[in-house]
Amino acid sequence: MQGVVKVNSALNMRSGPGSNYGVIGTLRNNDKVEIIKEVDGWYEIRFNGKVGSASKSYITIVN
């Protein structure tokens, strides 16, 4: 499943599904990500070869 980031500035990509996990990357508006699965309001995603988590509130699913 594919998604597109929708933010005003930037979205942190984290090492796990929650804001208490470390930041491993930064996503910008309109970045395209691969959604692997949903976990507690977060998506596990793949972006630029990295796997991490980002809040699903800022990612829109595209077909």
Rank of each mutant, 00 (worst) to 15 (best):
G52M: 04
K32L: 15
R46K: 11
S9R: 14
G49V: 04
P17S: 05
G3K: 02
S53E: 02
V39A: 08
A10Q: 13
I59T: 00
N48Y: 07
K32E: 10
G41D: 10
K50C: 10
E34S: 07
G18Q: 02
N8Q: 12
Y58Q: 09
N20Y: 10
N29S: 08
G52F: 04
I59W: 01
Q2P: 09
Q2T: 13
V4C: 13
A54N: 02
N30F: 08
G49F: 06
Y21L: 03
G52C: 06
P17E: 03
I59G: 00
V23I: 13
F47P: 00
F47R: 03
S19L: 15
A54H: 03
L11R: 06
K56W: 04
I24E: 03
R46E: 07
G22V: 12
G16P: 02
Y21A: 03
V39P: 02
I35N: 00
I24L: 06
G16K: 02
V51D: 06
S19Q: 13
N29C: 11
G25L: 08
T26N: 05
V33H: 01
V23W: 05
F47Y: 10
G16A: 03
S15Q: 08
R14T: 06
M1L: 13
S57Q: 15
K56E: 04
Y21P: 02
R46M: 12
R46T: 08
W42S: 01
I59A: 00
N48C: 10
Y43D: 00
I36Y: 07
G3P: 02
S15R: 08
V5L: 04
R28P: 01
K32M: 14
I59C: 05
D31A: 08
D31E: 07
A54G: 03
Q2V: 14
N8M: 11
R28V: 10
S55E: 15
G22I: 12
N63P: 12
D31P: 02
V7W: 05
R14E: 00
I24V: 11
R28K: 13
S55R: 15
Y21Q: 03
G25M: 09
N29W: 08
S9V: 13
G3R: 03
G3F: 06
I61R: 07
E34Y: 12
N20V: 08
M13W: 08
T60M: 13
N20T: 10
N20A: 10
P17T: 04
G41T: 06
V5C: 07
K56C: 09
S53V: 12
K56D: 03
S57I: 14
A10H: 14
G16I: 03
N8S: 13
N63C: 13
R14G: 02
S57P: 06
L11I: 15
E34G: 04
I59V: 07
V51S: 08
V23T: 07
N20L: 07
Y43E: 00
W42Q: 01
N30S: 07
E34I: 11
G3N: 02
G25C: 14
T60G: 06
V51Y: 10
F47Q: 02
K6M: 10
I61F: 06
W42H: 02
A10K: 13
R28C: 14
M13K: 01
V62G: 07
Y43W: 06
V4I: 13
I61Q: 06
G18M: 01
V5A: 04
T60D: 11
I45E: 00
N8W: 10
D31L: 04
S9Q: 12
S19C: 15
V7L: 05
G49E: 07
G52L: 04
I35T: 01
N12T: 12
Y58I: 05
A10P: 12
Y21T: 04
F47K: 03
M1N: 09
G49C: 08
G18L: 01
K50Q: 13
E44G: 03
S9N: 12
V4T: 08
K32P: 08
G16T: 02
S57H: 14
R28N: 11
T26I: 14
P17D: 03
R46W: 10
Y21G: 06
S57R: 15
G22R: 13
R46N: 09
G3M: 04
G16C: 07
N30L: 10
E44N: 10
S15K: 09
K56H: 05
N29E: 07
N29G: 06
K6N: 11
K6Q: 11
G49D: 09
R46A: 08
M13I: 15
S19N: 14
Q2F: 15
K56Q: 05
S19A: 13
V33R: 00
V7R: 06
K37W: 07
K50E: 08
G25P: 02
W42L: 00
G52R: 01
K50H: 09
K32D: 04
V39Y: 12
S57C: 15
G49S: 06
S55W: 14
V7G: 10
N63R: 11
D31N: 05
N20I: 09
I36V: 09
I61K: 07
S55G: 10
S57F: 14
G49A: 05
I35V: 11
N30W: 09
F47N: 01
M1V: 13
V4N: 03
I59K: 00
V51I: 13
D40H: 10
V33F: 05
G25I: 08
S19D: 14
I45G: 00
V4E: 05
G49P: 02
S9A: 11
V23G: 01
E34P: 01
I61W: 04
M13Y: 06
N20F: 10
N63A: 13
F47I: 08
G3T: 02
S57N: 13
E44C: 15
Y43S: 01
M13N: 01
G16L: 03
G52A: 06
V23N: 03
N20G: 12
V33A: 01
A10L: 14
S55Y: 13
L27Y: 00
V62K: 06
V23L: 06
S53N: 14
G3D: 03
S15E: 11
A54R: 02
V23M: 04
G22L: 12
D40I: 05
N48T: 05
L11H: 05
I24H: 01
G16S: 03
G22Q: 14
E34N: 06
V4W: 05
V33D: 00
K50N: 09
K32V: 15
P17A: 06
S53M: 15
P17K: 03
S9H: 14
D31R: 03
K37I: 08
I45A: 01
R28W: 08
R28A: 10
E38K: 04
G52V: 04
S9T: 13
D31W: 05
N63W: 11
V39C: 10
S15P: 02
R14I: 04
G25E: 11
E44S: 06
I61L: 11
I45P: 00
N63D: 13
T26S: 09
S53Y: 15
A54T: 07
S9C: 15
V23H: 04
